[in-house]
Simulated scan of single mutants.
Amino acid sequence: MQTVPPSEVETRQWATFLHLSLLAGLVVPGAGFVLPVVLWQLKKDELPGLDAHGKVVANWLISALIYGAVAGGLCFVLVGFPLLGILALLAFIFPIIGALKANDGVVWAYPLAIRFFS
């Protein structure tokens, strides 16, 4: 059995929290946008491995906002309503998959996320 260094364990834990913090908006409105960025900025210097996860999460946040704005605009022609539903489903599923992968030590780039940070 392979042992994982303590710093790697801590990085994996914080990366898991970082991905799951996207779901904080389900409890407190707006927290899903603020909490991930705050966690990333506070811990990225202490845990360098966390920076890659923070960029992935930030890319998804910005992408989801853009997709939401476009889908919201398309609601005038009724196409936006199912698109908003799909986006909401993906915004729930992607952080869970990202957290599971982060717990395994893998940086998982969210599909459909535009790469603003690399």
Rank of each mutant, 00 (worst) to 15 (best):
K43D: 01
V9A: 12
I97W: 14
L61C: 11
A58D: 04
S7A: 13
W14Q: 13
A64K: 06
Q2M: 12
L35Q: 09
L90T: 05
L90R: 05
L22M: 15
L112D: 02
A15C: 02
K43P: 04
L23W: 02
D45E: 14
F81K: 06
L22W: 07
P95Q: 12
G72E: 07
V28K: 07
L112R: 09
S63C: 09
P95V: 10
A102R: 03
V27D: 04
A113T: 03
V27S: 03
V79K: 05
G32S: 11
A91F: 07
S63E: 10
R115P: 15
A52Q: 13
E10M: 04
A88H: 05
L87C: 08
A15T: 02
Q41S: 10
L18M: 03
P29G: 11
L39Q: 03
I86G: 08
F92Q: 05
P6V: 00
L100A: 13
L84S: 06
Q41I: 10
Y110T: 13
G30L: 12
Q13T: 14
E8S: 00
L83R: 08
A24F: 11
G32V: 10
A91N: 15
N59L: 07
P82C: 11
S118I: 01
L61E: 13
V34S: 08
W14R: 13
F76P: 02
N59F: 09
S118K: 14
V9D: 06
A24L: 14
L20E: 05
V107G: 03
G25H: 07
E46F: 03
C75D: 07
L42V: 15
P111R: 04
I66V: 15
R115V: 14
K43R: 15
A15V: 00
L61A: 14
A24R: 05
K101H: 10
H53D: 07
V4G: 00
D104W: 01
V37P: 08
I96P: 06
G54D: 09
D104C: 01
W60A: 06
D104R: 15
F94H: 13
L18S: 00
L100R: 14
R12C: 00
